[in-house]
Design a protein around this nucleic acid. Structure first.
Length: 831
RNA sequence: GCGAGGGUGGCGGAAUUGGUAGACGCGCUGGACUUAGGAUCCAGUGGCUGUGGCCGUGAGGGUUCGAAUCCCUCCCCUCGCACCA
């Protein structure tokens, strides 16, 4: 018998599958489609274990769905623009394009060696002008619709990446990619108006509740941050001006005793009264603006303010309210001004304490007494009934919100309002290796869109990476200097490129007809395949890629390209791959290289271990001995297949065996076979629990291995053995396809597992000659009995009471009652 | 603080609607084969034990004939958000 040689087996079957084009998707309106997609990789060099895990999970689903009769689309491509290419190019003296395409070749080769059932005919890289030209088109069309604009804004600047970052890309004040501390700068930037879709992005999360993990939905909901409340205008005393605030608590208006403005408040200077300390106030505001934005925006930050000398009037009480500038008020949220209610807001409370401002409680807790006393330790933000609020007193706070807002509306000083935490998406990046923004600047005509027929605006490749700070589009004379599409005069091109998250916001749609020329999509193909039925990727994109892609889908729908509202019907977020309890990293020296695994154990073992060690959504701690265990199991399968070779016939998995005489051992084996098929189907289909699916195949293999010697007395016994082995191979095939194909073909099957049908188990086969019943006395296990499956409760009860050990426990005791659960257990309850 | 998810052997993890807790695997122990075993096979493996049993799913209470599972009160861990008015 030949030894198991993964390299040989895997090479052989990969060639066969590729030759037969088994995994090439073809649109077919008569068949149900299934689109399974894993987040495409950034071509950073080599595949890492995180890739292996996510693509293996996707591959099991894809192969399973193929076998279940679906028309499957399972494509792959490259998220190919990005900063690491520039850094590597600088370091190695090459060009980002060269580096990127070399990496793609390397990684494609590795993915192929892992045996994934991918449709390589649809592969593309986002750095190809044939791809990003459509993104430039979308940019122009969104601009036409007012969904793209350019403005000077404070931006998040990463000094190490030398570019700006979107809000989603700043984590804890640090760059999401390199962890550098983000600085604030003021730059003129292009924005996409994602806030226009805030409400829909929030509302449609409800439609994803079935298919998306709750925490991803929660994170997005949190990120969008919808607040309902009111806008209220506070007239400034001695002036025609008024200050507009946003508040979620209009019910506390009678308790508003002062006003807080953001240090960036644009009309601050006009508000300052003549004379007084104008200079000092402006200087203080300036200092607050220069505070570190991260610490300024954190709860622990010291609350600092300065009195402006100006007052406004509370529209309800008519009282004067001093106007302060306060460092904790953010210009980007609401109106940049906050009515301060120290009785019911902790920040205002602390501020009031610090500067000796009046604190007035206007909401009485439902159960407690009125809080009006100077001894209070903190603000009361909870529910209750209004007090000291004029004709609104005694009203429940929720109704008071409505009533006070309505009153303000009639006064012309307020209205209902909804605010979002979500900000517009800054897509300008001061980097070279990205998709150029299709805009030219003309001295006479200003910002001009590149005409659609002139797309793509190709990224010039003739730049040197060796310049100080790397390459920039500004370095390419030929690129920068152009003519104005409006007046024909001299003009300059935009030299920023687009955020690479733009490319990944629509790639899933391009796969539906990746070779389409002359248009971004082929509408019929797009309508057939979309949405993605199963999307798989890391949780780290919960509010990055996954939010942008949802937004883009809606925007492209409104541009007339798509007929769907949501791109990903089901989402699986796989856990991380750890080593010794920690994330793998070069600095820790705990990196496991998939290349080594492939070399030492082969693709099937690598796949088997990653699937078996942990369910998909949990973290997986890599364990070398576990890998060896997986390898050992495949060796065992190989040996077993060889040993049984002469007895096995291609009878099919879960073969029907009507009228065949089977020995008892064969009937037992057959029962195990069908219950295994039942379990695997359920584990894969309902819950993607590949670890338990594998465990049940292992049980079946164990059973075959230990039973095979007992078979032979029934005429159908050889067929039963063949069927059971076929079922084991077929059941394991989605996880370890190569070895299963090989052993399957060794059984004499002419067709391949890649084209096999997933069988249905036969409920008849599960029927047992006798069933095991557990007997408890007072809930404690005391014995086991075997009864006929059709035994009635009385018979079961009798058998239980006759059981030796049970009898012993009943001696001299009085039976109160006997609970009989047919097929399961008997519980004898004593008095 | 708010939101989500967890806590089960030495380890990774199982346990459909409440019904034999610990499937499967790793590790470990003993044995067989062997020049050898880090290969393979066989047996065992939650703890304690007087071998009858007793105790065991973060802690404590409850419901039930019966609870890892349901309810209540806590504790701990991981992740996300967090001065958003």
């Amino acid at each position: 018998m030949q030894d198991y040689s993964p390299a040989e087996v895997e090479r052989k079957w990969q060639a066969i599958w590729e030759e037969a084009k088994y995994f090439a998707a073809r649109e077919d309106p008569d068949r149900s489609k299934y689109y399974v997609l894993e987040m495409f990789p950034y071509p950073s060099g080599r595949i890492h274990m995180g890739h292996v895990r996510v693509y293996t999970i996707g591959d099991v689903i894809a192969r399973y769905m193929w076998m279940s009769g679906y028309n499957v689309l399972h494509p792959m491509g490259w998220d190919a623009f990005g900063l690491p290419a520039e850094n590597a190019a600088i370091e190695h003296g090459t060009h980002p394009a060269e580096w990127t395409y070399a990496n793609i070749d390397e990684m494609r080769d590795q993915l192929k060696r892992l045996g994934y059932s991918l449709d390589w005919d649809r592969e593309f890289a986002t750095c190809d002008p044939e791809y990003y030209r459509w993104e430039q088109l979308f940019f122009l069309q969104l601009w036409q619709r007012g969904l793209v604009y350019r403005r000077t804004a404070p931006v998040n600047w990463c000094p190490s990446c030398r570019t700006v970052l979107a809000n989603e890309q700043v984590e804890d004040g640090q760059c999401w990619r390199c962890d550098s501390k983000v600085q604030e700068r003021s730059l003129k930037q292009w924005f996409i108006r994602i806030t226009e879709y805030a409400e829909e992005l929030l509302r449609d999360l409800d439609t994803l509740q079935q298919g998306w993990p709750e925490r991803v939905i929660a994170m997005q909901r949190n990120w969008i941050g919808r607040s309902e409340g009111a806008e209220i205008d506070f007239p400034v005393q001695g002036s025609e001006e008024s200050i507009r605030v946003f508040t979620t608590r209009p019910d506390t208006l009678f308790g508003a005793t002062f006003m807080s403005l953001a240090p960036e408040y644009p009309r601050l200077e006009q508000l300052l009264p003549e004379g007084g300390d104008r200079e000092r106030v402006l200087r203080e505001a300036e200092r607050m603006r220069e505070e570190d934005p991260h610490s300024r925006e954190s709860e622990e930050g010291e609350k600092v303010g300065v009195f402006t000398g100006a007052y406004c009037r509370n529209p309800m009480t008519g009282e004067s309210m001093p106007i302060y500038v306060a460092n904790f008020v953010l210009m980007e949220y609401g109106t940049g001004a906050v009515m301060a209610v120290p009785g019911h807001d902790q920040r205002d409370f602390e501020f009031a304490r610090k500067y000796g401002l009046p604190i007035r409680c206007v909401v009485r807790p439902e159960s407690g007494e009125d809080l009006e006393n100077p001894e209070m330790e903190q603000a009361y933000p909870g529910p209750g009934f209004l007090v000291r609020s004029g004709r609104f007193s005694d009203m429940y706070f929720e109704s008071a919100k409505e009533a006070i807002t309505a009153e303000l509306e009639t006064m012309g000083l307020g209205r209902k309002s909804v605010q979002y935490r979500l900000r517009d998406w800054n897509i300008s990046r001061q980097r070279y290796w990205g998709a150029p923004i299709p805009v030219v600047y003309c001295e006479r005509c200003g910002e001009q869109p590149v005409p659609e027929e002139d797309l793509p605006v190709e990224l010039p490749l003739d730049v040197s990476m060796q310049a100080e700070g790397g390459a920039s589009l500004a370095d390419s004379e030929a690129f920068v200097h152009t003519s104005c599409p409006a007046c024909g005069g001299p003009a300059q091109r935009e030299t920023d490129t687009m955020d690479t998250f733009v490319e990944s916001s629509w790639y899933f749609a391009r796969y539906t007809r990746a070779r389409e020329h002359g248009a971004p999509f082929h509408r019929r193909a797009l309508d057939y395949w979309l949405p993605v039925d199963q999307y798989i990727g890391g949780i780290e994109h919960a509010v990055l890629h996954l939010l942008y892609a949802r937004f883009f889908t809606k925007a492209l729908r409104d541009l007339g390209y798509m007929g769907i509202d949501e791109p990903f019907a089901q989402l699986l977020t796989q856990g991380m791959v750890l080593k010794d309890g920690a994330k793998m990293s070069k600095s820790k020296g705990n990196v496991v290289d998939p290349g080594d695994m492939l070399q030492r154990f082969g693709a099937d073992t690598t796949r088997l271990f990653t699937l078996f060690a942990s369910p998909p959504e949990k973290d997986l701690d890599w364990n070398d001995q576990g890998v060896e265990g997986a390898h050992r199991f495949l060796h065992r399968m190989w040996r077993l297949g060889g040993e049984m070779r002469n007895e096995l016939r291609p009878v099919g998995a879960c073969a029907r065996m009507e009228g065949m005489e089977l020995s008892r051992a064969a009937r037992d084996l057959r029962r195990k076979e069908h219950s295994t098929m039942h379990r695997i189907t359920r584990d894969i289909e309902d819950r993607f629990q590949f670890n338990t699916a594998i465990a049940s195949v292992m049980e079946l293999v164990n059973e075959i291995s230990s039973r095979k010697e007992d078979l032979g007395s029934g005429e159908g016994d050889p067929a039963a053995l063949s069927s059971a082995w076929s079922t084991a191979l077929l059941g394991l095939y989605p996880m370890t396809p190569h070895i299963c194909e090989e052993l399957w073909s060794q059984m004499g099957y002419a067709s391949h597992l890649a084209q096999a049908q997933w069988p249905e188990y036969d409920p008849e086969a599960l029927k047992q000659d006798e069933v095991l019943i557990v007997v408890q006395v007072n809930g404690k296990l005391r014995g086991r009995i075997s009864v006929a499956p059709d035994a009635d409760e009385e018979q079961i009860k009798q058998a239980a009471l006759d059981q030796e050990n049970v009898k012993r426990h009943l001696e001299g005791k009085e039976i109160k009652k006997v609970v009989v659960v047919p097929g399961k257990l008997v519980n004898v309850v004593l008095t």
